[in-house]
Nucleic acid binder design. Structure first.
Lengths: 208, 208
DNA sequence: CCAAAACTGTCACCAGCTGACAAGAGACGT
DNA sequence: ACGTCTCTTGTCAGCTGGTGACAGTTTTGG
C-alpha cells in the first residue's frame, strides 16, 4: 500500500518540497514579495511545474488550512453523539487548534504560526481562505445535518450552524488579537464559542 | 454645494460611466470574460485611467455592495434604541435588501440583480465581497457597542454579533437558493435572522 | 492671463497564469 | 532486456492584471 510506485513518491516529494520552500520564503520575505519563480527555483523545477501542483500561489499557502479542515471534519464526526451540534463544533475546533499549536497530529507548529501570520496580514490571502472555507463548509453541514436528523440539502440550518461557527471563530479571534496579541489561539476560539452558545441577541442599554 | 467644480463633476461622471460600462459587460459576458481594456474602451479612457478610479476589477463590481453597506450602517444607526442588537440588525438588513429589490433609495434593481448573480457564480468575487464586509464590519461593531454600552475595541461581542449576522445572511441565503432559486432575497434574509435569533445550538437526535 | 495642481495617455515593465509541443523518465508487457 | 506507452516536465509563446514614470492637457485660482 505504501509502495505506490516511484512516480507517485516523486510527485509527493516535489509537492512537499514546494510547500517547504514556499513557507520558508513566505516566512522570510512575506507572501507578496515572494514570486513563484523563486519558489520553483528553490526546488529546481520550472515555474510551469509549480502550476501543475497548485493552481495559484494562494493555494500553497492555504494547503495547511486545507489539511486543518480535513482534520476538523474528522474530529467532528467522532464527537459523542449526544452533544448538541454547536457544542460538538465547539470542542472540535478547540481540539484541532490545540493540535496545531502543540505540533501534534501531523501538524507543524511553526508553519502553522507562519500561515496564521500571513493570513492575518494579507487580505487577499484571507479572502482566499474564506473562500476555501466556504467551499468545504458543506462537508461540515452534511455531518451536522446527520446529527440533527435533517437533510442538509433542504434544511438550511446545518449550513447556518457551520458557517456561524466558523465565522465566529474568525471574527472573535481577530477582535481579541488586537487587544491581546500574545493570547493563545485555542483559548480565543474557546471563548468565542462560549459567547456564541450563550446567544448573541444582547439587549440595548439606554444611554444615560 | 452641488456646485463642486467642473473637475469634480467630470470625475464623478467618468467613475459612473466606468461602473455602467462594467456592469453592462459583466451582465453580458460575465466577470472573468470581461477585460479591463474593454471596460475602459467603452468609456473611451485608457486602461491606466481605470486603475486610477478602481484598484481592481473586483472593486467595480463590488462598488454596489459598498454603497449597500453605507446604507445598512445608516439604517442601523436609526433603529429604535430599545431593540436588542440582533433584532435591530435583522430589521436593518431586511430594510436594505428590500430597497435594493424595489429599486428605491438610490438603488438600481437590475444592477443589484446582476451583482447578486456575479457574486453567486464567481467564488473569487464572493471572497472579495466577504473581505470588503470584513473591513467594514467594524463600523457596524462600533454602533452595536454603543447600543450595548460597551467599548467595541475591548469587548469582542459587538464584532461577534455583526459578523455572525452578516455570515448568517450569506450562508443561509446560499443554502436556500439552491432549493428555491426564485425566492425573494429579502424573505430569505428575514428567515435567516429568525433562525439565528432563536439560537443555533440544535440538539442531536439519536439515530434510529 | 499665467502658474500650480490635477487629470490623463503612452510606454515600459513585472508577476500570475495557461496552452501547446517536444523531450525525458517511469511503468509494463513480452 | 527491450520496446512501447504513458505520465511528467521544461521550454516557449502569449494573455491579463496591475504599477511606476514621464509628458501633455485641462482646470483652477489668483
Amino acid at each position: 500500500m505504501t509502495e505506490a510506485g516511484l512516480r507517485e513518491r516523486k510527485k509527493l516529494r516535489t509537492r512537499g518540497a514546494l510547500i517547504d520552500a514556499a513557507f520558508t520564503l513566505f516566512g522570510r520575505k512575506g507572501f507578496d514579495a515572494t514570486t513563484i519563480d523563486e519558489i520553483a527555483d528553490a526546488v529546481d523545477v520550472s515555474s510551469r511545474t509549480f502550476f501543475r501542483y497548485f493552481t495559484s500561489k494562494e493555494e500553497v499557502a492555504l494547503s495547511l488550512l486545507d489539511e486543518q479542515i480535513d482534520v476538523l471534519v474528522d474530529v467532528f464526526a467522532h464527537r459523542p453523539a449526544d452533544e448538541p451540534v454547536l457544542t460538538a463544533l465547539h470542542h472540535s475546533f478547540v481540539e484541532v487548534v490545540r493540535r496545531c499549536e502543540s505540533g501534534s497530529g501531523g501538524f507543524d507548529a511553526d508553519r502553522y504560526e507562519t500561515m496564521q501570520r500571513l493570513v492575518a496580514t494579507n487580505p487577499a490571502l484571507a479572502a482566499h481562505g474564506i473562500e476555501l472555507g466556504a467551499v468545504r463548509i458543506t462537508e461540515l453541514a452534511r455531518l451536522i445535518g446527520l446529527r440533527m436528523g435533517v437533510d442538509h440539502t433542504v434544511d438550511p440550518r446545518p449550513h447556518l450552524v457551520a458557517s456561524v461557527g466558523v465565522c465566529a471563530v474568525q471574527t472573535a479571534v481577530n477582535a481579541w488579537r488586537e487587544a491581546d496579541p500574545g493570547a493563545r489561539y485555542s483559548d480565543l476560539v474557546d471563548m468565542a464559542f462560549q459567547l456564541l452558545t450563550e446567544g448573541v441577541n444582547y439587549p440595548s442599554v439606554p444611554r444615560t
